[in-house]
């Protein structure tokens, strides 16, 4: 289910320099949206810029009937959006795309040497499904909504890894912590101004090397996602990543936002639509360009 509506902004805050959290009323999206899905919204009624912009849904508040997006001002569209105030209106198309696959209930069975698989709770001795959520900068947006949903699932341990250029761009750390005391938070900055000094993927590498992860979700800059994909392949751990591409229609009609993915036959490829088959893809499906 998806729809096209005019919505009212209920709140907009600059939560870090150049980063905005914008909330609007939409009971429809609150009920329909799945983590990883996005909305396509028009920043203003202009012919220039012309197109709407895609934004991952970052938070859903069932009590207030609000959803929120988190974005960075990167161009003229987002600059116009940043000027919007409470009660301003804009059109929203959504929820769109394919979101994250939530982990199955039940506990993980890991026979020695065999492939990992999920089996019903009763069948095997208890063991928790260990999940890593890896965010680069504003990439935390779809992952925060994912964490809101993971909170309600039993038998998970969750490591949340957030990386950014510096302390100023580290987003939603305290919110992740207060979302659930179960969330174990790891922070990293490129310049060492806070937390681990280096890329967030190095923390992931350490966790994977110690065989401490069963499933990984990631969103962030392409270079980071490429590193995550390499690590998951190396350690044979499944994962899903959320991609971003310039879009035309947002609904799968124009074929503008495609990414290269593995085809049905060996060494074949298919261009898949980020807006329709994505934005979330199983990590092993993506073919990364050199």
């Amino acid at each position: 289910m998806t729809s096209y509506n005019t919505v009212n902004i209920t709140r907009q805050d600059e939560i870090a320099p150049g980063f905005y959290l914008l909330s609007f009323k939409s009971p429809f999206l609150v009920h329909q949206a799945q983590p990883g899905q996005f909305v396509y919204l028009r920043c203003d009624n202009t012919y220039d810029p012309l197109l709407p912009r895609p934004f991952s849904i970052a938070m859903v508040d069932g009590e207030k009937n609000e959803v929120a997006i988190l974005y960075q001002v990167v161009g003229r569209g987002t600059a116009l959006l940043a000027q919007k105030k409470e009660l301003d209106r804009f059109t929203v198309l959504g929820p769109l795309g394919r979101g994250f696959t939530l982990p199955p209930s039940g506990r993980l069975f890991r026979p020695k040497g065999g492939p990992k698989r999920i089996e019903p709770l009763e069948s095997f001795p208890p063991s928790f499904l260990r999940i890593a959520v890896v965010a680069g900068g504003v990439g935390i947006a779809p992952l925060f909504f994912l964490l809101q949903r993971l909170k309600d699932l039993p038998d998970l341990t969750i490591e949340v890894l957030i990386g950014a250029r510096s302390i100023k761009q580290l987003l939603l750390g305290p919110e992740v912590k207060s979302l659930s005391p179960q969330n174990k938070l790891h922070l990293a900055t490129d310049d060492g101004s806070y937390g681990f000094h280096g890329p967030v993927t190095e923390i992931l590498a350490t966790l994977l090397k110690a065989d401490k992860m069963d499933l990984v979700y990631a969103c962030g800059p392409e270079a980071m996602l490429k590193t995550v994909a390499g690590l998951l392949t190396k350690y044979n751990v499944p994962g899903e990543i959320s991609l971003e591409k310039q879009m035309g229609c947002g609904v799968g009609a124009c074929l503008s936002c495609v990414c290269k993915t593995k085809g049905d036959k060996e060494n074949s490829f298919l261009y898949r639509r980020v807006c329709k088959e994505g934005p979330v893809f199983p990590v092993q499906e993506i073919i990364w360009e050199e």
Binding site: Y47, L50, L51, M247, G248, C257, V258, K260
Partner: peptide, 11 residues
């Protein structure tokens, strides 16, 4: 890709 670029009042 990239297959689309936004230009003034057009794509």
């Amino acid at each position: 890709p990239p297959r689309l670029a936004e230009t003034p009042a057009g794509i």
